[in-house]
């Protein structure tokens, strides 16, 4: 006999509206770390690209990039340890390696990134350009991990908003990280009176912003399709996501840099505006996703819509089996 309770699609039932999940304890420190990890990781990538293929006049850019990478490896772990509830045991993060845990994977990425970034900058300062040139490659490889592992960290949870679109969240974080690094380094070039370097970086930022914008729009659609879009459609984090992350973080810089790219003499003001928008938007993206995700965990209907049977995912058709 078919059971009504098991076969009928979900119609909004909850247990007194109580959350069916617990929200992560992550707050502004984690959001700040995700932003900084992306910024410093991607800065190391751009520094390496500029060092190996950018010519002598990119020397200051390379040095700035290496400095940004070090900033990430100094401030980043401080933020992470500050977010632990038993910070004195921070070293237990390196007690085991667990490939199912992005937190564990990330601990090793951060350790490797920090070690090679320090070696790169240290060798550079000591005049050992050859050592720096070799050490920056593994640092840059770790930098790609720094830029995106944080998206895997959020996605590999049961929090509906984070879990609904693992690929697009990761594309957004990665593109935003690359755009942020290019923006920060572009500002450095402007301040240093080297507009040519800034113009190249602005084009990198433009490409990254374009990817970010497309992925953001696609992600919004996926959240709606999964029934988990509530926290980015309404409430305090909706404007941070829509205006901060998408409009300011991706659309504005794309327009600024696109106008500049078509100009004979690119405008410094547009370049700086685009760069600042990317940095502000990058932080907005991480804050919005983190806090909206925490909200989504406390919305039982979002979770129950997300945790519906998916025959393609499960090895069996879920509701049919219990109907007997």
């Amino acid at each position: 006999m078919p059971q009504d309770s098991a076969v009928r699609p979900y119609a909004g039932e909850t247990y007194y509206g109580c959350p069916a999940l617990k929200a992560s304890p992550f707050g502004w420190k984690t959001a700040g770390y995700i932003f900084l990890a992306g910024l410093s990781g991607s800065a190391q990538i751009l520094g390496t690209v500029a060092d190996l293929g950018g010519g002598r006049e990119k020397r200051n850019l390379v040095r700035n990039a290496r400095g940004l990478a070090i900033a990430g490896t100094v401030v980043g772990p401080a933020l992470l340890i500050g977010d632990l509830h038993t910070p004195s045991r921070w070293y237990n993060m390196l007690r085991i390696f667990r490939r199912t845990s992005p937190m564990s994977i990330g601990s090793y990425i951060l350790t490797g990134f920090g070690a090679f970034s320090a070696l790169t900058l240290g060798a550079d300062r000591l005049g050992l350009a050859g050592v720096a040139r070799v050490a920056q490659v593994p640092a840059a490889v770790a930098g790609t991990g720094m830029s995106v592992y944080t998206a895997a960290l959020l996605s590999a949870t049961s929090t509906p908003l984070w879990a609904a679109s693992p690929r697009l969240l990761s594309v957004r974080f990665g593109a935003s990280a690359m755009a942020s690094a290019a923006a920060a380094l572009s500002l450095g070039e402007r301040l240093g009176g080297r507009p040519e370097g800034a113009e190249t970086l602005d084009r990198v930022a433009m490409a990254a912003s374009a990817v970010d914008l497309v992925a953001s729009v696609a992600a919004e659609r996926e959240y709606k399709a999964e029934g988990v879009a509530g926290p980015v459609e309404e409430g305090p984090w909706a404007p941070v996501e829509k205006i901060g992350a998408i409009a300011v973080g991706a659309a504005v810089p794309l327009v600024c840099h696109a106008i500049n790219a078509r100009r004979e003499r690119p405008s410094a003001a547009l370049s700086v505006l685009g760069s600042l928008a990317i940095l502000a938007g990058g932080m907005a993206l991480r804050s919005a996703m983190l806090h909206a995700g925490n909200r989504s965990a406390t919305r039982p209907r979002d979770y129950f819509r997300f945790a519906r049977p998916r025959p393609a995912l499960d090895h069996r058709p879920a509701p049919d089996r219990i109907a007997r």
Partner: peptide, 14 residues
């Protein structure tokens, strides 16, 4: 969800 997220992200970075 670790592999899809890391895969898409690293491809983007590449």
């Amino acid at each position: 969800r670790v592999a899809p997220a890391l895969g898409a992200g690293l491809a983007t970075m590449a």
